[in-house]
Design a protein around this nucleic acid. Structure first.
Lengths: 197, 197
DNA sequence: GATTGATTTCAATATTTTCTGAAACATTCT
DNA sequence: AGAATGTTTCAGAAAATATTGAAATCAATC
């Protein structure tokens, strides 16, 4: 089980090690994906393309992950929609090849952007609609309705901020998400007046 | 369908409106939750407690959401684990009552903290293990292994940063997540050297 | 220490999500 | 136009998840 020291490693041993490491990464990424509401297989296809770095075609993906052609087709299509993989071609080969975005931060930006668009924005829209139901124009409004509106406002404010942030940092032309994150990491604990204890 | 103007609204009408608005919020929050890998019902229970603001007991929750006792028990327990609701009591009443954290940012902090702990940290641990498999000490290491390690490093760096950020801003004693977010929102587009395009 | 009321657990069931595989559809080549 | 090759779709099958409900457990009261 202990890997042979690099000096004595044969080519075959190295290949096996590579494969093992890739498989483990694929499995971890898949687990993570499914915890966050992305289908395990879709995450695995993505992991495979990312970790190998190579463009792969449908058959290669099918074989490597032991999944059906239809499943590959659907997963790959979804990944294209998310904008985290690209279609490429090889001279003299009719097959479609797929290649993952190689920069992790660009990848995360794409994911964040899509998720906000798909899940936060619809929530905001619902909140708007709900607000229309409950006019708070007059102070004659019963107390409970007013309290409700206060709560809805709080949620709305918060998710709107998220949506704005995502446009700013995760948009296709967005400023660096990476640098923003590093900036925050360096920010002294306790900065800002909103600190709690 | 159009709501009566506030001046002419009867008490009953207001109550009905309130109920309708609450139900819609609960439904939206539930949808959102399930998109993010949280069970719909658990999210709905949380939404109910948040939107009413009142402590509620098991029977009230069962009735309002039309779900079984067992389901309420399990959902409530999970929400307690997440730290987004609290157990309370009423004098002369043996039942347990549950109340949601009312500050949205505190709530989001709790959620972020838990998710990082449950899903990002295990990924980091896996990455560590995978790294142990693939020694890159020697330059004798075949090219592919080296390339793999480069990719794993990129992922690791990125998620480690996330984990650190979560401790900083989402920890129980963490600095204000809200103020950090607002800070970012105000940050001029293009700040940082990581900008693209 | 038995009764009453509340809560938790968990095997069985129901629901939702994901996956397959083969047919339909495209595209390119001869 | 027809053959060959590649891709997508989608109804049904399989797997994964969530839910119920009744029995077991726990806790307070008499």
């Amino acid at each position: 089980m202990a890997p042979p020291s690099p000096e004595t490693m044969t080519h075959a041993e190295a290949a096996q090690l590579l494969r093992e490491a890739q498989d483990r990464f694929i499995a971890s990424w898949g687990r993570m994906g499914s915890a966050w509401g992305i289908s395990r297989t879709m995450a695995e296809v993505h992991a495979l393309l990312y970790v190998t770095g190579e463009p792969m075609n449908t058959d290669e993906i099918m074989d490597r992950l032991a999944i059906s052609r239809g499943n590959v087709s659907m997963s790959v299509r979804a990944l294209l929609d998310w904008g985290v993989i690209q279609k490429t071609h090889k001279r003299g080969d009719r097959k479609d090849y797929f290649q993952a975005e190689q920069d992790v931060w660009t990848m995360l930006r794409a994911i964040a952007r899509e998720r906000i668009k798909r899940e936060v924005d619809p929530l905001l829209q619902s909140l708007d609609e709900i607000r229309e139901l409950t006019p708070d124009t007059a102070r004659a409004t019963p107390e409970d309705l007013a309290a409700l509106n206060t709560r809805l406002d709080a949620v709305q404010e918060c998710f709107e901020l998220m949506s704005v942030l995502s446009q700013k940092f995760a948009g296709p032309t967005g400023a660096g998400l990476k640098s923003a994150a590093k900036l925050l990491a360096k920010m002294p604990t306790g900065a800002g007046k909103g600190e709690r204890r």
